[in-house]
């Protein structure tokens, strides 16, 4: 149909423009990571650099703070964290979608309240460090802040409320199913899109996070994730550039930190796995279409 075709063409044009805007700087990033460091400093970042060099990647993969090890940590953390986080988020979201649940309104408000008010960094730190003693352990990367947040819970709740028809569930109860069975056998399979979406959000949250590692890891450098490693390096540079008046030998410090091209390479390295994994996750979005399960 004509409007259909027009739309397809229009859609492609828009997406191509947006995609180009997104990818252009990323290509620049990639090219800079392969550019010779001195050239970067002299001529700035350029799409067609004067001199190429793989020094940055050499440095990353052979330097003391093993980047490969950090990759491992990141991957482990993301897998474990996403699994746990997804489980508790989905369960809570489903529970809150049940309109008959006594106290549902209050609990929903309590969940939402955490989005607005936060104890703050120092109390949170004291909570995890003193009370729970997880500092300098893997738990410190896993538990604080990232596993579940109100936003995700409310997304899941809203999905279950609007997209799982009551008729299906009623049919199940009439057939004598328990709540748990209804959840596992009916609601969950239909929730694939939201599970994939929230799983993606949680996964990206864990992968990108460097804050937890920054404040909770002071002795265990073997627990640094990739983004933690990169951001430490970059923060050190920013810090020195801004505080040179109070630190007498800032230049010495700056000289000890890896060069510009290495920072670019680390950024590429940090993004790479997601580039590879994301297409696989995308499949679930397509598979989650309700197959016309609602009939009268």
């Amino acid at each position: 149909m004509k409007s259909e075709r027009k739309f397809q063409v229009f859609g492609h044009i828009v997406m191509i423009i947006i995609t180009l805007c997104a990818i252009l700087p990323l290509v620049l990033l990639l090219i800079s990571s392969f550019t010779d460091n001195d050239t970067l400093i002299r001529n700035g970042y350029s799409f067609i650099p004067e001199k190429l060099s793989a020094y940055a990647y050499e440095y990353i993969f052979t330097s003391g703070n093993s980047v490969v090890h950090a990759y491992g940590i990141s991957i482990l953390l993301t897998l474990v964290g996403t699994t746990l986080g997804l489980t508790i988020t989905t369960l809570l979201g489903y529970a809150l979608s049940k309109t008959f649940l006594p106290g549902r309104g209050i609990i929903t408000f309590l969940v939402f309240f955490t989005m607005l008010f936060n104890g703050g960094l120092v109390p949170t730190y004291i909570n995890y460090s003193d009370v729970f003693g997880i500092k300098n352990t893997f738990w410190a990367l896993l538990v604080p802040s990232l596993m579940m947040n109100a936003f995700n819970v409310l997304m899941v709740k809203s999905y279950f409320v609007s997209s799982i028809p009551d008729a299906l569930l009623e049919a199940a109860y009439i057939d004598g199913a328990t709540e748990t069975r209804a959840f596992v056998q009916i609601a969950l399979p239909l929730a694939k899109p939201i599970v994939a979406t929230i799983g993606l959000f949680i996964g990206i949250g864990y992968w990108n996070d460097w804050m937890n590692g920054y404040i909770y890891l002071t002795k265990r450098t073997d627990l640094y994730s990739i983004q933690n490693l990169l951001n430490r390096m970059i923060q050190n540079i920013q810090f020195l550039m801004q505080n040179s008046s109070s630190i007498s030998n800032a230049n010495q410090g700056l000289a000890s930190i890896p060069s510009v091209s290495v920072r670019m390479a680390m950024a590429v390295v940090g993004v790479l796995p997601i580039v590879i994994v994301y297409p696989f996750i995308q499949n679930n979005f397509v598979k989650g279409i309700t197959l016309g399960g609602v009939k009268g």
């Binding site: 489980t87 508790i88 988020t89 369960l91 809570l92 489903y94 529970a95 809150l96 049940k98 008959f100 649940l101 006594p102 609990i107 309590l110 969940v111 955490t114 008010f117 936060n118 104890g119 703050g120 120092v122 109390p123 949170t124 004291i126 909570n127 009370v131 729970f132 538990v143 604080p144 802040s145 596993m147 579940m148 109100a150 819970v153 328990t178 709540e179 748990t180 959840f183």
Partner: peptide, 26 residues
């Protein structure tokens, strides 16, 4: 409701530990 509350329990526990325990620190 009871199985539903049980489902909600892990999440609420996490919320309590992560968000509500430090909150008085405000």
């Amino acid at each position: 409701s009871i199985p539903i509350y049980l489902m909600a329990l892990p999440g609420l526990l996490y919320l309590f530990i992560n968000n509500y325990m430090p909150m008085p620190g405000i």
